[in-house]
């Protein structure tokens, strides 16, 4: 029970305050992850009253403010729930399953040479915008936790769709698709519940899921 919670507090500040109170009482503080606290890094992530990140849609835990909770005063805060995210301690989960997806193909590994002239490789504005929209993923894992199937298609699709549109990323497109699709076996299948897009702090669209299958099918027909 916290008596001095104020509307301007964020969820993490509420946990900070709770931990202060626990320490004052000589008890162990509750472990939770956070870093930038401005919705950029993707380190934070807890489940609040059954919803990953909290009651405000498309907002990371650190940007969930009590003033936006609409009179909810009783919070049940749990770690992100998924078989792929084993709980390390209290609210801290091990999200290295996501790292394995990134290691498999969420990066560009080509000899790019020295910095070329800015107009050497032209990218249409619309393409650049779409690629950047997919690149907005902060890798928090809320999509996996929100999914009734425990699928990571939104996350993986964001990487595939983003990198497939840009010149350097295109070089490894087929290899990347195969590697990423293989790592998705660790997660569940997508059944288009759409729960992931409700919680995604980057506001990724369900199109990212289609990108997983587009890239996967393309890799099958591409041969080598």
């Amino acid at each position: 029970m916290l008596e001095d919670a104020t509307p301007e507090m964020s969820l993490l500040e509420l946990l900070d305050r709770l931990n202060d109170q626990l320490c004052e009482q000589g008890e162990e503080p509750i472990a939770f992850e956070s870093d930038c606290r401005e919705g950029v890094c993707g380190a934070c992530g807890v489940t609040v009253n059954g919803t990953p990140h909290g009651p405000v849609p498309n907002t990371p835990s650190c940007r969930q403010h009590l003033r936006a909770f609409g009179g909810i005063t009783k919070l049940r805060i749990e770690p992100l729930r998924s078989a792929a995210f084993p709980v390390v301690r209290d609210l801290v989960v091990d999200r290295s399953a996501l790292d394995r997806v990134i290691r498999a193909g969420g990066h560009v590994d080509v000899m790019a040479g020295t910095a070329p002239d800015a107009d050497d490789m032209l990218i249409g504005h619309a393409d650049a915008e779409v690629a950047l929209d997919f690149a907005a993923c902060i890798g928090c894992g809320a999509c996996v936790a929100a999914c009734p199937n425990g699928a990571a298609h939104l996350f993986a699709g964001a990487k595939l769709a983003h990198l497939a549109m840009l010149p350097h990323g295109k070089v490894e497109r087929t290899r990347r698709a195969r590697a990423v699709v293989e790592t998705l076996d660790e997660f569940g299948p997508c059944s288009s519940y759409g729960e992931c897009v409700e919680v995604c702090p980057a506001g990724l669209p369900l199109t990212a899921v289609a990108a997983v299958h587009r890239e996967g099918l393309r890799a099958i027909f591409k041969g080598k």
Partner: peptide, 12 residues
């Protein structure tokens, strides 16, 4: 597969 990947907790 979904049941295994979801873990023990049901989703609303």
């Amino acid at each position: 597969r979904a049941r295994k990947a979801r873990g023990r907790h049901r989703r609303r």
